[in-house]
Design a protein around this nucleic acid. Structure first.
Lengths: 410, 410
DNA sequence: TTAATATGTAGTTTGCTTGAACAAATGCAG
DNA sequence: CTGCATTTGTTCAAGCAAACTACATATTAA
């Protein structure tokens, strides 16, 4: 069980770096108020973060108020994470700086869904290319992968990614070996939830559900009390397999009557007579369509969406539900209908708390989410991880020896 | 946002008191290992807790091993909480000591479901009686109420308790005013989950679901990452209203096809030809019955139970599911059938993590759970709350002044 | 009885936060 | 333009909690 020793310092550094990371840039005086720490302490802590090259301090641009203007603390754009997102038809790799700024994004299309080996090779190659173009000052703290499937938290194994055809693949380990960077992976929707909560529509919201409707099905991520809901192995949030009717079509797991089997992008395309379309095109087509068949299919899907949301609301009591992908389009077509269904399914007191909205982050969503995964060890222990280049969780011996050395020199 | 100053002390005291509370009694050496703190530090911290009369130290009874035997730290039975559980036909009040030991339990039957005023009056009267019989040394830290309904976390209002006929009742405030003790309330199933997790079948399990089947329906509580899942207002865990079929009977909220409407104690009693029975009698009758009709109803309910559990497993990825009340009886009748249904509904990788079991705590369950609620401020800040008699969450000014005084005297 | 092992105790050391005093930079009133 | 109030950054001494070291103590094994 955990407790404190001189890890006070670690905790405070973590708190401050996290605040700066979330805000992008924030006055030092603000840090004083938000943390409740003394000005002198903030000065010392920020100084250390500057020494660690994690943040920079500039004296300009404060809100004009009475008194001496506060110096502004900003994230250091030299500290970056690599974000990776393998998909059915492409592998996307991005460079994301502290503060959630996507500096670079490269989408590498593939003819077929990539194998794990291919995904690793493509990613390694792109990273090698990126490294060549980077400033020598730039430091990569690690790699985060957003996987469209179930990833085991404890060992990093991709247990199942049906649309990629992956099963029990050691993706994390392979990419770490290939690149030498500390690597971690997570479910794409869970990371999307994290991104929206930190930088998007869910800023400051502690209890929310993010649902994304994509070509390959429905993914979900839950934030509860400000923390991503993981479960024992990190598989939590799979709302797509919620039962919404007794019978019906089969979903990707072969089960009938689930949310994911009834509410699909494909069914919308079919009724529209389209063979393919991206999310924006689909939404435009849906809004333009006057046909009764389209309307009826939209309503049918909205009703099932409402049933799934109602169940989730009863279990999770969220304040916010963010609907991404074509789920957001469905919602935009007829918010009232969805509200009505949910109101019927969910307990009134719980439904009362809920706001439904669409995501704020666009194409960068998964890049930002995956980068969060890579940043999290650094945010949790800024001094410990900046010390060594690799950035793995520091083992006690190395920390000890470092501290002993410091003591000796004084 | 929070961080550390001399709150290190608070955190460490909290950690140690929590460990002792959960274990009941634990050797000091064990505390050293579990916390990672130094022996001297543990000595000082335990010393402070002894001074605060929260724990006691005795030198006897350690496991015989090489070396000097460690002194054993025990919870001080003089520190107690009052647990209250209003029900349809009775109000139960108990005295629970630190360590989760129920020292006293009084069940006061009522002819009709009590009004809030009646519940408060009965409780106050019983507490007055208890106080008379207590040692003068005994200190009551507060009152916890387990309510069969939805309780708002932020203001303590009982939003809805359908079986008691309560709606938006300020129960917490009324009982606090009547008794003078700090009072808090929570949903009965959520508190049951907490009790089983701390002292029962869920010891050491960080992700679990507790489901209880009672006369008035199905209640649920979720523990995620070791913390009770609350949601925005504390209504989370209402698994009873999960949809398990497209149509069907109406549940207590007037919605058809929910878990609670299909899986009921009443339907079991009816098919058995019984008019009333407690949980044990019902279970015996179910095991004794050979009739095909009984068997078929049990199977029907098991199937719906499986559907509800499957959905919950997909969303929450628990390691353990505890089935209380008649849900436990149903499970005991045919575990294999339930396993089969759940295996079909849930994602295999998530289902793979799950163990299903029955509760370990008996009639004391809700007393222990409600007491946990009352103990939690004390466990979070042992020194801060023991200082004043009332035990409310200390406001900053009082803490400040106290600290200033200490500084001044030295 | 002696050695080995593990725990409790006392006094010193270390590191982090704090607080007070002072310097610096801005807005506002005259 | 000048002085005052206000807010923030900076410096340095002080306080405090945990860690460390050394020693005392209590048990098992030989």
């Amino acid at each position: 069980m955990g407790n404190n020793l001189d890890s006070v310092r670690q905790h405070n550094l973590s708190t401050i770096l996290t605040l700066v990371h979330h805000a992008g840039s924030i006055p030092r005086a603000q840090l004083t108020r938000r943390t409740g720490l003394n000005r002198s302490t903030i000065a010392a802590l920020v100084g250390e973060l500057v020494d660690l090259r994690l943040v920079t301090e500039s004296s300009g641009e404060t809100t004009s108020q009475v008194g001496r203007p506060s110096s502004v603390v900003q994230t250091n754009p030299d500290t970056v994470a690599i974000a990776v997102n393998p998909e059915v038809d492409a592998v996307t790799v991005g460079v994301v700086g502290l503060g959630g700024v996507v500096q670079n994004r490269i989408r590498f299309p593939t003819e077929k869904p990539p194998t794990v080996r291919e995904a690793v090779n493509i990613t390694s190659a792109i990273i090698a290319g990126i490294q060549g173009g980077l400033q020598t000052e730039t430091r990569i703290v690690g790699i985060g992968i957003a996987v469209p499937g179930l990833v085991c938290q404890s060992n990093g194994l991709v247990r199942l990614a049906p649309h990629l055809g992956w099963k029990d693949e050691p993706l994390t380990e392979m990419l770490a070996d290939a690149t030498g960077y500390p690597t971690s992976a997570g479910n794409d929707a869970s990371l999307g939830a994290r991104a929206e909560r930190t930088f998007g529509a869910g800023r400051g919201i502690d209890d929310m559900i993010y649902l994304n409707g994509g070509a390959s099905g429905v993914g979900g991520g839950v934030i509860s009390s400000g923390v991503a809901l993981g479960g024992t192995s990190g598989y939590a949030g799979e709302l797509g397999h919620t039962r919404v009717r007794s019978d019906g079509r089969a979903d990707s797991a072969g089960v009938r009557g689930t949310f994911e089997s009834e509410v699909t992008r494909l069914a919308l395309l079919e009724v529209l007579g389209l063979s393919s379309a991206d999310t924006d095109e689909l939404e435009q087509a849906l809004f333009a369509a006057k046909s009764l068949a389209v309307r009826s299919e939209v309503n049918r899907q909205l009703d099932f969406l409402g049933i799934a949301l109602g169940g989730a609301i009863n279990i999770l009591n969220p304040r916010l539900i963010i609907l991404g992908g074509f789920l957001g389009s469905l919602y935009a077509l007829d918010p009232e209908r969805l509200h009505k269904v949910v109101a019927h399914e969910a307990l009134p007191v719980s439904w009362n708390d809920v706001t439904i909205s669409r995501p704020k982050l666009g194409a960068d969503l998964l890049m930002v989410g995956a980068a969060e995964l890579a940043f999290s060890p650094l945010l949790a222990d800024p001094a410990g991880l900046s010390a060594q280049k690799a950035g793995r969780v520091p083992d006690k011996s190395s920390q000890e020896s470092e501290r002993t050395a410091l003591n000796g020199s004084r």
